[in-house]
Each structure stands twice: as structure tokens, then as C-alpha cells.
Design a protein around this nucleic acid. Sequence first.
RNA 1: GGCCCUGUGGAGAAGUGGCUUAACUCAUCGCCCUCUCAAGGCGACAUUCACGGGUUCGAAUCCCGUCAGGGUCACCA
Length: 552
Amino acid sequence: MITNQELANLIFPDVKETIEDLEKRYPKRNLPEGAEVTRFAPSPTGFLHTGSLFTAMICQKVAKQSGGVFYVRLEDTDTKREISGSGEQLLSQLKLFNVIPNEGYLASHEVGDYGPYCQSKRADIYKVAIKKLLEDGRAYPCFCTQEELDEIRAKQEAMKLIPGYYGHFARDRFLNNDERAERIKAGKPYVIRFRSEGNHIHKIKVHDLVHGDFEIAQNDQDIVIFKSDGLPTYHFAHAVDDHFMRTTTVIRGEEWIASLPIHVELFEALGFEAPKYAHLPVIMKLDAETGNKRKLSKRKDSEAAVSFFLEDGYPGEALIVYLMTIANSNFEEWLFENGYRNIDEFRFSFDKMSLEGALFDINKLQFFAKEILAIKTKDEMYELAREYALKYDEKLLKLIDRDPNYFKAIMNIEREKENPRKDYYKFGGLADSIAFFYQDEYEKMEMEPFNEKFSHEQIKEILTHLKELSLDQDESSWFAQMKEIGLTLKFAPNGKLLKKEPENYIGSIGDVAEMLRITLTTKKNSPNLYYVMLVLGIEECHRRMDKVISKL
RNA sequence: GGCCCUGUGGAGAAGUGGCUUAACUCAUCGCCCUCUCAAGGCGACAUUCACGGGUUCGAAUCCCGUCAGGGUCACCA
């Protein structure tokens, strides 16, 4: 009968390297004590998911704050689901949130000594590891067809047994090497399975950086490690790659906890030391139909894809800040003490992480976005807005480019002060809210109705008088003038007085301001009127007032 | 269904046996300020920590049970 060695050579005749060679090729990293090597390992099957950004952000943070390495590895072993170009997109979107790897797959090229960083290019490496397992008798070819597998499963279901390829159900583990060789030579298609030595009635203790210690059933499944397309499955690739890329801490979603026993056994069989694990809670959403929590779903929830925030023009920083509040409960407090400008100095810790998946809260995101945009300078606002407009908003781009300084002036209304206005939380819709500042756009807009309390004649009269307003001094003198004009026409200088002596007045200064506001901006709400007038310029203000007077 | 994880207000949460009449943040609501809005100021919002039992002088905190929610059971990752 042929030996394991001979069988291994039959399957992988070209593989000459050994695990030892690989150990030499990918030596332990020379990093200071405590430095963490983390990785973000997406599969190129679509857009960047909000949960993936969350994971990637934490990976980067952990590596950065420990003086380690954060790298990206493309898990492109599922050729069927792969969407071409999504690898590049993933990287470019990550970059927009300032999550920038210092090693690995970078779309246009690769950086680092532990590559290649695309799994599809690592076939040779996986083969070395599989060959070793074959030689050790810890892996075997399996010739079962899909139908046969289905049959086994049906039998197990009927008998109410745990489904899967294990124990005596693992039919092909009982073949002898001669039979295996014969079938291979006959050209029968096969996969390679791991031969598990575990038993699910035994428990193993595992440690997780966020969940702590817990027990879980040992693996007993003879999982597929090498698919018929010549590529490894996730589990196997994880063990091999994270070992040879010298990852110290594997940070991934909670959905991987269930397969931890497989990974533990794989590392053991390969003779590798397992990395530390951190299984992150999943970001959830309340399902409108069932009222239950569920994972953010790309199909159902627009906010599941980071492109949603990008397209709507949320500042990238805001999403990161928001995600960090979910990641570490003490972050918010830290933020209020230390400010938005030094976020890098915050020290992330796995023990400050909640164990339950947080419900995605767009309100809170918007709150942070407002705060962040409020402390931007007018120039930063210009850059940000233009960057957004360039990609997503043609109308906004035209308005901005017509006169950058004019746009900055609009953005600067009540910005350069202690408590800047917090009007904006995203750039989506900005064009519409500032359109009235532009003459031609203003002409196209429909005015909100004036207060019906006042006749057209009264409004005309007031507007005519308001043309005397001067912007030459400051806001308070402007406002004093307006009060004075109002007073001569029987408008109380404040609301309280009107309430107190309703018989003496026909309205209050508020009514006067509203008329002016609607006239100039078409809206009942706008930024500080004085500054709006300054930006528009007194001539344009008069033009708009004249127009309304003549139209009424 | 088995296994694993989780369970403090509308949301994120602090809390690890007495300092808790449960911090803080968002949201909501009310009042004040005010030319509208935004901001800001002040205040309201959990007699109670999923539920039931137990331990204890004392429990959100420890133990047991129950329930609920989530995850997972592929030649997908």
C-alpha cells in the first residue's frame, strides 16, 4: 500500500517547498514588545459594508496605538461571488475614512514582505501546507459528489443528528491510500478535507479579547480545506495566512465565533501558534416588520453600505467618530474633554467594548456630523463641499465654481465665532438650501407665503421703508434701525411688548423680520438675516425688495 | 432544533455587593434667551436594572432556573 508521503506527492507533484521553508521566507516580524499586527481581510464581493468599516477602523487603531502593523489581505477565494473592481473600491472607500493600511493589498500595488496579499495568488503556499497535512495523515481527498453529500445530510436530519461530514459519516476518510490513488489516477474530481480528531462532546476553552473566556464544543467536522477549483476555503486560508503574515490579533465579526473550534484545531494540526482573537459585536438595526433587532443588511438598509454616507455627503470623520462611540463606551466622554481634533490620541481598549450589537443610530451620527462641520473653517468647508460635489452633486458644483469666494462667504455666516452655527451635517441637499443666495436660482424659487395677518399694502409699505436699512455699521445697529422702522409703522420692538399692549401695535419686530426674510430668501427660516444681507450685498437686497413690492 | 453569545430608559451606555434617590451622551418634550432657524442656558424623561427564586444586614452587581434577542450549523466568506 502506498504511503501518505506517496499520496501527497501524487496530488502535489510540483510542490517541493516545506513548511520550514515558508517559516524562513516569512520570519517573525521584528517589532517592539507589545506591537500588534492586525489585518482587515475583506472579500471583493461588493461595496464596503458599514460593519466592515467598523472592523477595519478598529484593526487600524489597535495596530497604530501599539506601534504595530495594519495590513489588508484580499480574500478572493470565492471566484463565483467575486465582483470585479470591488477590491479597488474597498480600498478607496477605506481611504475616504482615513483607514489606510501600512502594508498589504493596496489595489494598485502591494506593500510588504509577507505577500502576496491576495489569496488567489497564494495557491503555492496553501499547497505546501496541505501537502504537509496530507503527509501527516491529517488531510485526505474526498470524492463525494454534491448528491452524496445531500444524501448524508438527509439521513442525519431524519435521525435528528448533527449534520455534517464527521465521524462515520465522513465516508472517504475510511478509504485507504491505494483506493485514493486509484481514483485520483482515474481522474475523479475531489476536494481535500481536514481529518478532525475532535469530538463535539468535549469542550475546549477559548479566550476572546472582547468576550473573555468561554467554552465551546470541540470541532469534529472534516471540513473542506481545498476546493475542487484549487483554492482553499476561508478556514484554511485564515490559519495559513494569519500564521505566515504573522498576525498577532485577529479582529473580525462575531459571526466567526462559531467556527473558532475549527480554527483552533487547524492551527494545532499545522503546528502553528494561534493568534489572539477579538470577535466584534455586529451593528444592528430594528427590523420594521418584525420589530426585532437584526444585522444591518445591505439589501434592506441603505445605511449598511458606506457608499450611502458618501453619496449623501456625510463627513467621513463623523462616521468614524460615531463608530468609535459604539466601539468604546468611554470614547464619548474622552471626546468631549479632548475635542474632535485629536481623536488619534484616544486609546482604544477591547475591555471597553460592549458585548451586544448596537442599533445603528443615524441621529447620533448627525449630531457628530454637525459638531464636526461646525468647527471647520470656511476653506475646509469649501474643500469638503467641492470634493463631494465633484462626485455626486452637479448642481452644487456649479454653484461653488461660479465663485468660490462667494460660496465661502455663505459658509462663513456665523462660523468664525465661539459657538459657530451648526446648520449642516452633510453636503447632500446643500445646493437647495443655499440656492437663494444666487440670483438666478432665487428667481426660480417659490416664496413661502407671508403672514396673512397683514395686507399686501402693509407689506409693501414695510418693505419700502426697510430699504432704508444700512449694513454699514454692525449687526446691533442694523437691528436697532429695523426696530425703529418697525416702531414708526406700529410694530412693537419685541414680542413681549406686543403681548402686554396689543392695542398699541399691529405686530412685532418678529413680523417685520419675517417679511424681510421671506422677501430675501423665500423662506421663513434662514441663517442670521443681517449676515445674509451682507453676503447678498445691499444692491441685490434692494432689487429683491423692489421685485416683491412690485409683484404684490 | 443543537451549540455559542448577549440582556440597565426611545438609542448608545456607566456601573464588578453598601459612595446609586442608577453617571454621561444622543433623541424627544417643556421653559428661558431670541428677528426665524441653528446654537446656548435651565428642566422633564428607568420607584428600577428581561422575569422568577435564592445567598446576604444589604444585589443592577453573586448563584440557580426561565424567558427573550442575536449568531452559527456550505466545495461563502
